[in-house]
Design a protein around this nucleic acid. Sequence first.
DNA 1: CTGAAAGCGCTTACAG
DNA 2: CTGAAAGCGCTTACAG
Lengths: 333, 333
Amino acid sequence: MATLHDVAKAAGVSPMTVSNVLNKHPHVRAETRERVLKAIDDLGYRVNVAARNLRAGRTNTIGFAVPEVDRPYFAQLAARVIAKAQDAGYRVVIEQTGADRENELSAIVSSRTRMYDGLILSAVGLGTADRDLLTTDVPMVILGESVFDSPVDHIALPNEDGTYAATMHLIDRGCRRIAMVEGDDVSRLSVTSLRHAGYRRALAERGIEPDPALVVELHELSSESGRLAAHGLVDGGRGVDGVVCITDTVALGVIRGLADRGVSVPGDVKVVGFDDILEARYSVPSLTTIDPDHDEVARLAVDLLLARLADAPDWQPREHVTGFRVVARESTG
Amino acid sequence: MATLHDVAKAAGVSPMTVSNVLNKHPHVRAETRERVLKAIDDLGYRVNVAARNLRAGRTNTIGFAVPEVDRPYFAQLAARVIAKAQDAGYRVVIEQTGADRENELSAIVSSRTRMYDGLILSAVGLGTADRDLLTTDVPMVILGESVFDSPVDHIALPNEDGTYAATMHLIDRGCRRIAMVEGDDVSRLSVTSLRHAGYRRALAERGIEPDPALVVELHELSSESGRLAAHGLVDGGRGVDGVVCITDTVALGVIRGLADRGVSVPGDVKVVGFDDILEARYSVPSLTTIDPDHDEVARLAVDLLLARLADAPDWQPREHVTGFRVVARESTG
DNA sequence: CTGAAAGCGCTTACAG
DNA sequence: CTGAAAGCGCTTACAG
């Protein structure tokens, strides 16, 4: 395979001039550039990225670590992050962590290893105890969960306020026996804890007694888990008339599970999700949900990372909480 | 940042010994290994992947180029490819091509550029004319579309036979006015052409006159396009009683569009998709579809690539067509 | 079981 | 506008 040296020889110039042409540096005579480009074409030369990265000390790549690439929320967020990063001349590599603490740490290590210039980490498995591990030398942005007092930039979703609004929405539509289908990580500041708090706050504010029998904890935030949760709620005969779901993917499973039992949505039970994934618009009934402004999340994540990469000297880690809105659709109609 | 040389100095050994420890080569005395590992830990050393790749001449990474990372079919396939590749010690980088010919070629170029040891390309924009461009020096597997007589390994979906079976399934359930919602690339051997052929073959075999007014071509294979197509079919008053959809994502939009018009599925109109994405199981009604055996696709793609990487001397490009089965669910019940 | 030397293919100061 | 030299941080034969 041809190297930059071969091209230089063929074009009768120095390797450095070839490098200048490749990197679009200005001070190359037009005629020289033409000669070099022709030689590149003739030899079918392609730059060796490993060599370039080694020498340049950076990779022009940012890592995006998510629990699962095939969960719509992450896939759709990834598409936006890729688009934003591309605009800034960066490539994005998606890492799958499996919501596992070990793998999330290993994504951090990957970036230490200089495969990436920076990392966007959708943290699920990390906890407050991992705080020190985040004191990394590589620019990093944590997404979606609050690692308390973390020493890196952090973008939080409006977990509590969003779920509060979702629950209020159900109460306003007449629901009184409102179930919450959530995750099983109830540690402080987990997504489940925060969203649960929003649910409880709404109930309290409207004087509705919380009933522990209406709270279902899922080990996996999948549609299948949601469906089984719905079966349990119906079969338990608890008179449920509304369900707050921790994610849209779970909510779509809940709707399916209610259909399995012949329970009509929104007639008998109203359902609300969280995320506003694309699928929420096309389900039957379409899903009422909390839109946490994905575009802002993606934009902010990339912008914060780029700011860090630009090496702001007086950089201070910041915490951002995105806005949200309730998107009312048929499932609470 | 500490380098391998720093570790060597700290441990009192040569760089090569450190390298041997890092790469788990056997002939290192246990005691020496311990000393090296301690030095690595003390210094917080991480290998520089760019340097390793440059020297080793490979990256242990395979590229997976898909039209859109956020389309469920590709996201779910990517998850499987990642899992299979991981088992074999490879990382996977997902590239988004946007179903654009230029970008698909640039994914090929990326692999020429040695970012990847091999490439799995989900071809949509490539055509027969690009045949020569595929004569690449980098191992490659083409997925999902038939680039006629391509000089690389190729895994085709059962496009024609699968759609034939889907159409027969509708006919067997009593449908006679069967629409087909497909893409707008009607060039020879495109996904649309192949699936359309299966649809036509089934109609012909059962003596049903094909009606061009029942064929809808979509520019984008999205749920939104599917929904609009359904509106058009209903509003056109063409007496449709069945719809064959080119993908599940389109089919879910069609079901939604029929619901918009108060048309009941499967009562008034039966709907069948293609892909068996996860969402097909949870929609209301659940979606009858063609399962093209994703696991086999992912396994085959990775296996073929690994075989090529292993440098089989008498390698010949092969074409594989995966099996399929009709998964009957409520939408044709 | 361990080491000294060479080199993978680029780019970065430094000259001219 | 162009070049000669050095070096990024590893691993690969080759010795011993």
